[in-house]
């Protein structure tokens, strides 16, 4: 009986958490940056975007290079190494670009957001904002939210572009695939709407989810060192799982049926 009660209470807590998270999301969405907040947003874009740039570029480069190497060894045995370009480009644009960027973003920027907001809560900075008649949602959450939503797709685009260049480096410059066929077969296969735009949409959705989870976890963490560390871990775990699950759903919607 007690177990049943606990289950019911747990479920209710969970639904309430979803409710308050949604309310926060809408709050942040509609608290669209005013001119004053645009500068805050630019600063946050520096924190979540520019500071994630290095890890994104390096990972993109290596993933592109590894894919070219792996793809080449398989394709060459069918005499189809000309298809290396589209293979690298499509995997990056459709899947690896958005997904890996989002996972890295969750680990690099999401956790930092949670920790920062959690710490602001623990040191009463959020309360103090409230008492100064400044809405923390508007002043603290919204700029971070929008900065994340803008930065992530840009990071994903940079990731894919760098990956394709990395694939070119290994496939063409080292393994000797013809440069012309690398690009031209890629061009005839890759579609702007189908592949590039869908990839960006994926990245946008992932960004929304990661930033949302990160901000919610930070804002509602238990303001102790233990609570913040737990919230940070949860941000990374929940974001990663949600990204992978959503990726399947989005892929099925975009590429599954046609």
């Amino acid at each position: 009986m007690q177990k049943l009660i606990n289950l019911g209470r747990g479920t209710l807590d969970y639904i309430a958490a979803i409710g308050s998270a949604s309310m926060m999301l809408f709050g942040a969405l509609f608290a669209f940056p005013t001119w004053k907040n645009t500068r805050l947003m630019v600063h946050q874009m520096y924190v979540v975007g520019v500071q994630s740039l290095l890890i994104i570029i390096v990972s993109g480069l290596f993933i592109g290079m590894v894919m070219a190497l792996q793809g080449y060894t398989i394709l060459v045995s069918y005499g189809a190494e000309g298809s290396l370009g589209p293979m690298v480009a499509l995997s990056l644009l459709r899947e690896l670009g958005p997904v890996v960027t989002a996972l890295l973003f969750a680990g690099r920027a999401g956790s930092a957001l949670t920790a920062e907001i959690g710490l602001m809560k623990a040191t009463e900075q959020l309360s103090s904002l409230e008492m100064m008649a400044v809405d923390p949602l508007r002043r603290v959450l919204s700029p971070r939210f929008w900065a994340g939503v803008y930065s992530m797709p840009m990071l994903a685009l940079i990731f894919s572009a760098v990956g394709i260049l990395g694939g070119h480096l290994v496939g063409v410059d080292w393994l000797g695939v013809d440069s012309g066929s690398y690009w031209s077969i890629m061009q005839s296969t890759v579609e702007w709407n189908e592949d590039v735009v869908n990839g960006v949409i994926k990245a946008l959705v992932f960004a929304l989810v990661v930033v949302w989870i990160a901000l919610y976890k930070g804002y509602h963490c238990i303001p102790t060192s233990e609570g913040i560390s737990k919230a940070t871990t949860e941000t990374v775990v929940y974001s990663s799982l949600t990204i992978l699950g959503l990726d399947f759903v989005l892929t099925a919607l975009m590429f599954g049926i046609s």
Partner: peptide, 9 residues
Amino acid sequence: LLALRVANQ
């Protein structure tokens, strides 16, 4: 890069 070299708009 993606628009011009990869997707050939």
